[in-house]
C-alpha cells in the first residue's frame, strides 16, 4: 500500500491555502466524538463513532441513505440529546438544511437576524446578505425567492453568527446543476473568509471531492473510510480526482474499485489503521 504524505499546515486564518490544514495534533479539535452511540429502540444508528475535526477544516461526509449521516449532523447541531457521552463541539454552531427552512412570515433580513440579540442586527444581517450577493433582497418575503436565493439566505443566516462549526446538510441537493456550481464557489469563498470548521453531508461524490479537505464515508453508523484530498483548489476532474472518485465510489458500493492502491485508509473492522 502506498501512503502519499498529506501536507500539514498550522491553522492560519489569513492564508488562503490551496490545501487546507488537516487535523493537527497541536491544536484542540473543534469537534471530537469518542465512541459515540445513538440508538432508537433496537436500531443502533450510530455505533461507536470516532470523529475529530480541526478548527477551520472542511470535512465532507458521504454515505448511503440510512447510514446515520443525518443523525450525526443533528447530534453535532445540538438538536438531539447526547446524554453523558463524550461530545465536544464549538459553542457556536450553525446549520444549513437541504430545504432552506426560512420562516415565511419574516422578511429575508429578519430571517438572517433570527435569534441575534445585540442591537445592530439589521446592519449585520445586511452585511451577511451582501456577502452572499443578496443585498437587494433584504425586504423580500422568503416565498418570493428562488431555490438558489433561499439557500444563499440560509448560508447568510448561518454565517452571520460567525460559527465555529458550520453544518451543511445536503444544502445543494435540490438546486439545478448550474446553481449548484455557483453555490460551491460561494461556499468555498465564504469558508476562506470566515474559516469555520465545516461538515458537509452529501450524496454527491464529486461535490465532496471538489470542496473538502477530507472525505469520510459513513456506513452502518461508523466511519468506514477516510480520504484526504491533497489537490489544489479549484479542482478540475483530472486523473487524480478520478482516482479518488473511484475509490470513494467503491466504498459506497456503487462500482468495484479499480485498484486498491492509494490514500484510502479503511476501517473494515471499525478500528483505525494508520
Amino acid at each position: 500500500m502506498v501512503q502519499p504524505r498529506i501536507r500539514r499546515r498550522a491553522f492560519d486564518t489569513a492564508a488562503v491555502p490551496a490545501v487546507a490544514p488537516s487535523a493537527s495534533p497541536s491544536i484542540a479539535p473543534a469537534v471530537k466524538l469518542n465512541g459515540f452511540v445513538r440508538q432508537f429502540g433496537e436500531n443502533r444508528v450510530i455505533d461507536g463513532l470516532d470523529l475529530s475535526i480541526a478548527p477551520g477544516e472542511f470535512v465532507a461526509l458521504l454515505g448511503a441513505s440510512g447510514s446515520g449521516k443525518t443523525t450525526l449532523l443533528r447530534t453535532l447541531a445540538g438538536l438531539d440529546p447526547v446524554g453523558d457521552q463524550d461530545v465536544t463541539t464549538p459553542s457556536t454552531r450553525a446549520v444549513v438544511f437541504q430545504d432552506a427552512r426560512l420562516l415565511p412570515w419574516k422578511k429575508v433580513w429578519r430571517n438572517v437576524a433570527l435569534g441575534l440579540k445585540d442591537k445592530d442586527v439589521r446592519a449585520r444581517a445586511e452585511a451577511a446578505l451582501k456577502e452572499v450577493g443578496l443585498g437587494h433582497r433584504l425586504d423580500a418575503w422568503p416565498s418570493t425567492l428562488s431555490g438558489g436565493e433561499a439557500q444563499r439566505t440560509a448560508l447568510a443566516r448561518a454565517l452571520v453568527r460567525e460559527p465555529g462549526l458550520l453544518l451543511l446538510d445536503e444544502p445543494f441537493a435540490a438546486l439545478d446543476a448550474l446553481t449548484r456550481l455557483k453555490m460551491h464557489d460561494l461556499v468555498l469563498n465564504l469558508w476562506n473568509e470566515h474559516r469555520p470548521a465545516v461538515l458537509l453531508v452529501t450524496h454527491d461524490v464529486d461535490e465532496a471531492i471538489s470542496l473538502a479537505d477530507r472525505v469520510l464515508v459513513l456506513n452502518k453508523g461508523r466511519i468506514a473510510a477516510e480520504e484526504h484530498i491533497a489537490l489544489e483548489r479549484p479542482r478540475a476532474p483530472d486523473a487524480r480526482f478520478q482516482a479518488i472518485r473511484r475509490r470513494l465510489l467503491g466504498h459506497l458500493g456503487v462500482e468495484a474499485p479499480a485498484s486498491h492502491e492509494g490514500a484510502l485508509i479503511a476501517f473494515p473492522t471499525g478500528e483505525a489503521v494508520q
Binding site: V95, D99, R101, L114
Partner: peptide, 27 residues
Amino acid sequence: VRLVEAARSFGLSGWSLVREVILPGAL
C-alpha cells in the same frame, strides 16, 4: 416541525420560539 427545529438550532427556545415561530405559524 422542520421550521421549529431550524429555529432551535439558531438558539431560539421557550417564549422566543413561541413568539417568533409558533404563533406566526398558527396565525
